[in-house]
Design a protein around this nucleic acid. Structure first.
Lengths: 117, 117
DNA sequence: CAGTATCCACGCAGATACTG
DNA sequence: CAGTATCTGCGTGGATACTG
């Protein structure tokens, strides 16, 4: 019963902190929202664009490329005319589901009320 | 069996998205790390500074002020010489614990490996 | 449809110096 | 000790126009 005296929380600094590392991958400029919407399933570029609201095309593209480079989403290109590109979560991306749902719940309870007042 | 046809995940856009709202409050420039370290308990400014590694004093102060304005941390000033200021989590701040721990676990498993390669 | 390319403005973060 | 003040540069994002 609580014999081993290891600190409950390890100390982490800067880039080595896993909390920061996680946030670095999927926080910032709509990434959370993108991932959240992709929980529903595969979405085309413009479907995604509609859902994330007022984000510029440029920004959306940039965020998608970053998420792709982190292997959190997959980009499937169909060489048709007109072009069709579908985005979906990767295996790794799907492991974020509990976190994204927790963020959503916490946001509804705490974040949104604060931001709106 | 699967009669009610409501989307499993509500659709949220822009500022109204609770996922984004949450991230807005505690992502960005060391906030995650600060909150994580405060899970351990109350910390003085310089203790915190040591733990978060190479963050400038200016930045640390700024992040702390923002977290305080969101009522995630409490700032206790002791009018002594030399000055002493202690930071701790508020009630609301403590509700982030499961999320912060999840971010840490996920970071160790997925984020850090990706960032280091 | 799903993007690039270019231009530009401004916000934000680092460095440095100072202070109650 | 725990901050502020000031200056400065460069990164980042918006707007707009163009394209395979």
């Amino acid at each position: 019963m609580d014999t081993v005296k290891r600190p409950r929380y390890a100390s982490y600094a800067g880039a080595g902190c896993p909390v920061e590392a996680s946030l670095e991958l999927f926080s910032g400029k709509g990434k959370g929202m993108i991932l959240y919407h992709l929980l529903e399933g595969t979405l085309r570029f413009n479907e995604l664009k509609r859902r994330v609201g007022n984000m510029t095309q440029r920004m959306l593209t940039k965020q998608l490329r970053e998420l792709e480079s982190f292997e959190l989403i997959h980009r499937e290109i169909y060489p048709e005319i007109p072009p069709k590109v579908e985005y979906s979560l990767t295996e790794t991306g799907r492991t974020l589901e509990p976190i994204l749902l927790a963020l959503k719940d916490w946001g509804e309870q705490h974040a949104l009320p604060k931001l709106l007042k």
